[in-house]
Design a protein around this nucleic acid. Structure first.
Lengths: 243, 243
DNA sequence: GAGTGGTCTAGACCACTCA
DNA sequence: GAGTGGTCTAGACCACTCA
């Protein structure tokens, strides 16, 4: 193995998986780009194609790579719209899925509150961007979001009109700031609506709202964005299969 | 392939996977039992061991089988306690996980309401067992549950003192009724507590509660139990990793 | 030491994509 | 038709379990 980033005692397919994950994290290839063919990787690392396949299989099942028969194997660009739909049902009358529009209420830079600096892995009081926005369907508010970003990484956001860039932030992070969100961890809770959130969501104070906290990371698992979203419980819906 | 239960045009490892899943559903082996060795399966189905491994790999990753190096491959007995902990945090002061105790409030047989007969795949008005129970920690109610079962399958439950059998129902289903829960689908919502549920959960009417609906199935995916649980939102906590 | 699953190889042939 | 991933084989050797 050229640059050992992993334990020598592990099986070769594991070591290749770790090596590839490392190179992806280091941006050897961009999202959407193809990695070398299985035959090329087998030659590069002097192992058999079957072993390469096992390493690639692992990254495919982790959602990092995507195979296309006859074309190649590609760095997967995560589809984060879908995560919205895993938790909330935003459906039109015909059942089709709709991306809620976005209205930015406020953007400001502040010293990071300690909870934020901890979760984003920043020094205490590091400057952070705080964004408040509302997501709407048919002009009805469905989600109130509070978004925290390191100012050092996301400075360019302060210099554009975000409402003009469309409802999805992650493509903007990538094009404007070169930051790629690769995975995220979400935590769900429920609470009674505060005065402020009741006003934002056009509901009664005390009525049940669902709260989703999300920590988004890049391929190197460095935290990029922390987000807290609140939505009407009556839009909320989440299913899992357990075994 | 001896008994074709699957499409001939699929790859052999897929066909073997389907065949094994079918035989597991038909109770060829009981939970905890070993299936034949990879070599034996290769001979039985006249395919190579590598192909058998791929079929077994699929069932392992689906959570149906469990490998133990040097010992064999076994029918996995699902650990359903853990599902409770995926959604609610019931932790003692030291952070250890505790199974809430169970208090059965009521057991009765009724004609199935249409929602229940549909979801359990029973004829309209088929007799069903309806069970109400409370889960408690330190004598504090944490979950209110409503459980529906086909009377035809679960008749023996009516003849024992369920509160004496311990807090977990699925082992009882297996020992008393021979029904094995293999997987379940859970759907989460939140709502404001009704008068009844507020009283059961010792909380205020209107305060936020989390509602979990669960449909539990056997290995053949036949619905066995439908359950609706309500708990305090303040105990609620759920995390997912998304990509 | 016999029997199990775990890793790895080298190679054949198929299915699909794209110029 | 060249190049890609997808399936499948037969077999070697390793790691672990258990009597």
């Amino acid at each position: 193995m050229k640059t050992p980033v992993t334990d020598d005692r592990l099986p070769r397919y594991q070591r290749l998986r770790d090596q590839l994950a490392h190179e992806i994290a280091m941006n050897r290839w961009r999202p959407g780009e193809a990695i070398p063919t299985e035959a090329a990787l087998a030659q590069e690392y002097a192992i058999s194609v079957g072993t390469v396949r096992k390493a690639v299989d692992a990254l495919v099942s982790e959602g990092v790579l995507e195979r296309q028969q006859g074309r190649g194997t590609f760095i997967r660009r995560p589809q984060f719209q879908s995560s919205l739909f895993r938790f909330f049902r935003f459906q039109g009358p015909g059942g089709e899925r709709r991306v809620p529009e976005s209205r930015i209420l406020r953007v400001e830079t502040v010293p990071a509150p300690s909870a934020v600096s901890q979760v984003l892995d920043l020094p205490a009081d590091a400057p952070v961007i705080r964004m408040q926005r509302l997501r709407l369907l048919d002009a009805q508010p469905v989600l109130a979001e509070e978004i925290w970003l390191s100012q050092a990484l996301f400075q360019p956001l302060l210099e554009v009109d975000l409402d003009r860039e469309g409802p999805l932030l992650y493509p903007i992070y990538e094009s404007l700031c070169g930051q790629v969100v690769a995975s995220a961890e979400e935590t769900l809770t429920a609470e009674a609506a505060s005065e402020v959130h009741a006003r934002l969501l056009h509901t009664e104070p005390g009525s049940p709202v669902v709260v989703i906290e999300r920590l988004a990371r890049d391929y190197a698992r460095k935290p990029l964005e922390w987000r807290r979203s609140r939505g009407h419980a009556r839009h909320f819906h989440y299913s899992v299969e357990i075994r």
